[in-house]
């Protein structure tokens, strides 16, 4: 990357405290597609001049997939170790690149001693737009293209965040079309509840293929989302339908970066 990614360790060594911690998450750290989104979130943070840092090698899984799979021991082990790190750095505010990390740290860490103001990156983007710090200019034009938004379960139903990601799309000169199953009625991509890490149970079809029917119905050329797991599932779904030429799956952060030419 062009810019240097500041880590908490470095900042602390210099006696500095960033305004916000960017919690990257496991997918954002290791999954190639999600890594790109991670870099895009950093580009946005850098562009607007927010002082931020990442934990880097001190970050560890929030424990979300363990908890959803029923392994509360492992979840709490992960949580307590993470909380110790976060509290050690006196973290107050966290932005995550993943709705699962967002939900877990926001809702499930306070009971274990970790209370922070936690936002999802689409909420950060929304507030930057509201403050006039982010626009959609100087980059790629989305004019005339149809975009639909797939609500990640742990952002939407899980935490009632429906408008933030849409706000980031509404400033584009484009047509935002909703799928038949959207917002609180949104259909899961199939990855939640630790399904990402196992084969689905026997059935008629895969859930992401079912979701593709909704996408195709809208006639959208871009499916936007805000979750690395949805990203994988939707991208696979588009591949199964052999629609890779017609339909692109993009994260809200990627769209924002493209629209601003960052």
């Amino acid at each position: 990357m062009e810019q240097k990614i500041p880590t908490m360790a470095e900042m602390a060594a210099e006696g500095k405290e960033p305004e916000i911690l960017f919690w990257v998450g496991c997918a954002g750290s290791f999954d190639e597609r999600a890594q790109k989104i991670t870099r895009d979130i950093c580009k946005i943070l850098h562009h607007v001049g927010i002082s931020y840092a990442v934990l880097g090698t001190e970050e560890s899984c929030t424990g979300d997939p363990a908890k959803r799979a029923g392994n509360e021991f492992l979840f709490q082990m992960q949580a307590m170790v993470n909380i110790e790190v976060l509290n050690g750095y006196n973290i107050k505010k966290i932005v995550t690149g993943c709705p699962h990390c967002f939900n877990t740290i926001r809702n499930e860490y306070p009971g274990l001693g970790g209370t922070y103001e936690v936002i999802h990156h689409t909420q950060l983007i929304q507030s930057l737009i509201d403050e006039g710090k982010l626009k959609a200019e100087g980059g790629e034009s989305f004019k005339g293209r149809k975009i639909t938004f797939h609500d990640p379960c742990y952002l939407g139903r899980g935490n009632n965040v429906y408008e933030a990601p849409r706000a980031a799309l509404e400033i584009l000169d484009t047509e935002l079309v909703e799928m038949k199953r959207c917002k609180s009625n949104g259909l899961c991509c199939g990855a939640g509840g630790a399904q990402m890490f196992k084969e689905p149970e026997p059935g008629k079809k895969d859930i992401n293929d079912e979701r593709m029917l909704d996408v195709l119905e809208t006639g959208a050329q871009i499916v936007a989302s805000g979750c690395p797991f949805c990203m994988t599932m939707l991208t696979d779904g588009v591949k199964h339908m052999e629609k890779e030429q017609e339909i692109k799956v993009l994260d809200i952060a990627e769209i924002t970066v493209r629209a601003n030419g960052l």
């Binding site: 750290s29 290791f30 870099r39 090698t57 970050e59 992960q78």
Partner: peptide, 26 residues
């Protein structure tokens, strides 16, 4: 997945030491 998380702090078999490698790319 549980084993990976316990050993490397991620649900996949990646080393925690490689967690910041994304910053080096692109």
């Amino acid at each position: 997945m549980f084993g990976n998380m316990e050993n490397n702090g991620a649900p996949w078999k990646y080393s925690q030491a490689d967690r910041l490698n994304w910053a080096e790319k692109e």
